[in-house]
Design a protein around this nucleic acid. Structure first.
Length: 743
RNA sequence: GCGAAUGUGGCGGAAUUUGGUAGACGCACUGGAUUUAGGUUCCAGCGGUUCACCCCGUGCGGGUUCGAGUCCCGCCAUUCGCACCA
């Protein structure tokens, strides 16, 4: 199965609509039509019966259906999270639309504002997403990126008492440094800080300042900012008072939003303590005993010092001992960086989230039988303000599915990553109007054998896709754990070192290239230029001209060949050159088949075809059985050529008298009988250097090989007068290595 | 800073699994043939060198081995990803 679909919701269509006043649906349909035309001209063998488009209601209704299923299972929740809010535009912006804290287009200021949104609870699957990598034949760098993204870290959770009787919980990977705690750093959004700010105008101002910083500024700035609150915590072992700071470097959405500050053994805490004059206490000494200056930071594990009864323990042993001693106050814990997936978008061009706001029942899911919640197309675009859904009465007005009272429809739409998180399942059953897909189809086809996509999808899309598959499994809809067995990340085609883009004007129009050179030459060049996962820099037309030359030569070869229906004579009747050609042919069938089916090495597949064409051209014109030998070889050659140059291959196949379409013809089979040779050239090495060659029968014995090597005339100069230490004859029969030394 | 990958002719790149003839195939270039000429096509050459021989050569330095582009150790460089994750 080789399907294609159109991931067609999202910002490009909406932006085009705002900019040019075209409706996103019109723009989207026009684009799909154009791209489909180009793909068809290239002769790519997609199965158009399975074509899908995510903006159509027969697709997105199943996004909604899955949302409801996940809602039932408790995989959906609502929570507040900051968004990029632009007051002047009255809308939310994506991260990439915000530059220097301003809207990229209008320059209006953008601030962080908490907004209630829908989330998929992907973090429940953190551990499983990590473990699943073992069964995946994926590039190592992609797995590494995902591991990073999921970000598992082992440590402990621990509570500090406050003077007020409340507690602050922290997560730390270095519980062994507990005696070095000289301050606490809390996120400005931490409840304890928010509470303290009510009575402390200075703290309030600090928190507002940090909140006003754009996400970018916050991440980019190396400067540690803090504000000492009036709150103090109590050290669980020493009972000492520890100051509590609000700090910009502590993130509310990781761990507990609070950090125990250990300046002597953590770089960040160290920088912060220096700036705010907090004391630095060393509690870990290096294992190798080297001296650490009192003012320096030592972040490795080691041996505990200045740590009361724990002094002398190793870092590892100290963690266990402390957890035991702290009792209810501490426990070992694992934290992940992976955050729950916020899927709300305050935009128009996406799948409407199928919920309803009822004045009495609150947020209620729509009933499954009322799906789809249609995205209305008769709305106005003015390029400002909120999504048109918020002003469309026809869309908004509805009744509550729970109590039947008048209610309002949700106006948020789904992140387009939802669309792309299960689309490949829809290919299996694209016309199904009872379910997203039938289990029988899934069991018959899944998992996907080969998934090809850009490296830019290494984290987001490929994690969401794996997550959805696990949810589908838990819903009983699929049987496996992982959707994509093998992954290849395809390289891009660049122009002059840059990604092609219309705005930069560095575009090579495929239609033009096809008009000039043909689709076959373009395909051949593109797959030959580099391995599939590498980028190709399109510097000029020399490469494609080379491909054209090859295709012309092949065409000429078939034109000049007189079609021959004669049987191929028995091998022993063929001339030496004929046997040699057939040997090359069958060896090459073997190699090309391997390149195609197991190695996915298409550039060497093409070079193999070229080598084979060279060999065909070398057969003497007066070879005694030229007709049947060429017929046999060309027939196999053209069938293999059809993978790279399908259009020309069809024509040549017909010229050769082939039945039906070459696409449907059986793949040539590499026959052992033709691969063997009566004589092979064997390399003679002396002390590892190639010194000569001898011709031997493949069945020559070890003794015969040894004798031939020692008698090799070119090697004599390096053998004469030397003591023969040994003769190595490795398996494979292609080489004999003689080891000598001066007597 | 952390993580991953990659370093092979003028260029894109080959060298499969388990160490065994480095530079396949193509581009560019050079010379020749055909042609009034250009283009096309065909033939030959094309890592370096003191150029039949020998020697050197897969980022650098070591090591293992009869033999290393491939394996091990230590560097260097480039690219990509993540980046205050406690």
């Amino acid at each position: 199965m080789h399907p294609l679909g159109w991931d067609s919701f999202g910002m490009p269509a909406e932006n085009a609509a705002i900019k040019h006043g075209i409706h996103p649906a019109v723009w989207t349909r026009a684009n799909i039509q154009e791209m489909k035309g180009q793909i068809q001209k290239m002769g790519i063998s997609y199965d158009w019966d399975r074509e899908i488009a995510t903006f159509q209601e027969d697709y997105y209704r199943w996004n909604q259906w899955l949302f409801l299923k996940m809602w039932e299972r408790g995989d959906v929740f609502r929570a507040h999270r900051n968004v990029n809010w632009c007051e002047e535009l009255g809308t939310v912006l994506a991260n990439e639309q915000v530059v220097d804290g301003k809207d990229e287009r209008t320059g209006f200021p953008v601030v962080q504002k908490p907004m209630e949104q829908y989330f998929y609870a992907i973090s429940k699957y953190s551990q499983e997403l990590l473990d699943g990598h073992d069964q995946l034949d994926w590039p190592e760098n992609v797995k590494a990126m995902q591991r990073h993204w999921i970000g598992r870290s082992e440590g402990a959770r621990l509570s500090f008492d406050l003077a007020t009787g409340e507690q602050i919980q922290v997560f730390t990977t270095r519980l062994d440094t507990l005696f070095g705690v000289s301050f606490m750093a809390l996120s400005t959004e931490h409840p304890v800080i928010e509470e303290a700010a009510k009575a402390d105008p200075g703290l309030k101002a600090f928190c507002d300042q940090v909140a006003g910083m754009s996400r970018e500024d916050r991440l980019m700035s190396d400067i540690k900012l803090g504000y000492r609150s009036t709150v103090e915590a109590v050290h669980p072992f020493t009972g000492e008072k520890v100051p509590v700071f609000a700090a910009n470097y502590v993130l509310m959405d990781y761990g507990t939003g609070a950090v125990m500050g250990v300046p002597a053994h953590d770089e960040r805490d160290h920088a912060f303590a220096k700036k705010y004059g907090v004391s630095i206490t060393q509690v870990i000494a290096p294992v190798d005993g080297h001296e650490v200056k009192a003012e320096d930071c030592f972040a490795d594990e080691g041996i505990l010092i200045n740590s009361g009864e724990f002094t002398g323990l190793s870092s590892e042993a100290a963690v266990d001992a402390m957890v035991a001693k702290l009792g209810d106050r501490a426990e070992k814990a694992i934290t992940f960086k992976l955050k729950d997936w916020g899927l709300s978008r305050q935009r128009y061009w996406g799948t409407p989230i199928p919920t309803i706001h009822c004045p009495t029942c609150g947020v209620v899911p729509e009933k499954a039988e009322n799906l789809p919640v249609r995205l209305p197309e008769d709305v106005e675009f003015h390029g400002r303000g909120a999504s048109p859904l918020t002003t469309s009465r026809a869309f908004l007005d509805c009744t509550c599915p729970a109590c039947g009272a008048a209610a309002t429809r949700e106006t948020d739409t789904m992140d387009t990553f939802v669309d792309s998180s299960w689309y490949w399942m829809r290919y299996l059953d694209p016309k199904n109007d009872q379910a997203p897909f039938a289990k029988a189809e899934s069991d018959a086809w899944m998992p996907v054998d080969l998934y090809i996509g850009g490296i830019e999808h290494a984290t987001m899309h490929l994690i969401y896709a794996r997550y959805f598959y696990k949810v589908l499994r838990d819903l009983g809809m699929v049987s496996g754990d992982e959707p994509f067995k093998k992954l290849i990340c395809q390289g891009m085609v660049l122009k002059d070192g840059f990604k092609m883009s219309k705005s930069k004007g560095n575009i090579v129009d495929p239609d033009e290239v096809i008009a000039r050179y043909g689709a076959d030459a373009l395909r051949l060049f593109m797959i030959f230029a580099a391995p599939i996962e590498k980028e190709i820099d399109w510097t000029g037309f020399e490469g494609i001209e080379g491909a054209t030359r090859f295709l012309k030569r092949v065409t000429r070869m078939v034109d000049e060949h007189v079609v021959c229906g004669e049987e191929l004579p028995a091998k022993d009747q063929l001339s030496k050159e004929e046997k040699e050609l057939l040997r090359k042919l069958h060896l090459m069938i073997h190699r090309i088949t391997d390149d195609l089916e197991t190695r996915y090495s298409f550039n060497t597949l093409v070079s193999g075809l070229m080598e084979l064409a060279n060999a065909l051209g070398d057969l003497p014109a007066d070879a005694p059985h030229r007709g049947p030998v060429m017929q046999h070889a060309l027939s196999a050659f053209v069938r293999m050529l059809s993978t790279a140059a399908p259009h020309l291959a069809e024509q040549l196949w017909e010229q050769l008298g082939g039945q039906g379409f070459v696409m449907h013809a059986t793949w040539p089979e590499a026959q052992e009988a033709y691969m063997s040779a009566e004589e092979v050239t064997v390399v003679v090495q002396v002390n590892g250097k190639v010194r000569g060659r001898v011709t031997l029968s493949p069945s020559a014995t070890e003794d015969e090989r040894r004798a031939a090597a020692l008698a090799c005339p070119e090697a004599q100069a390096h053998l004469a007068g030397k003591e023969i230490v040994k003769v190595v004859i490795p398996p494979g029969g292609k080489l004999i290595s003689v080891v000598v030394k001066n007597p």
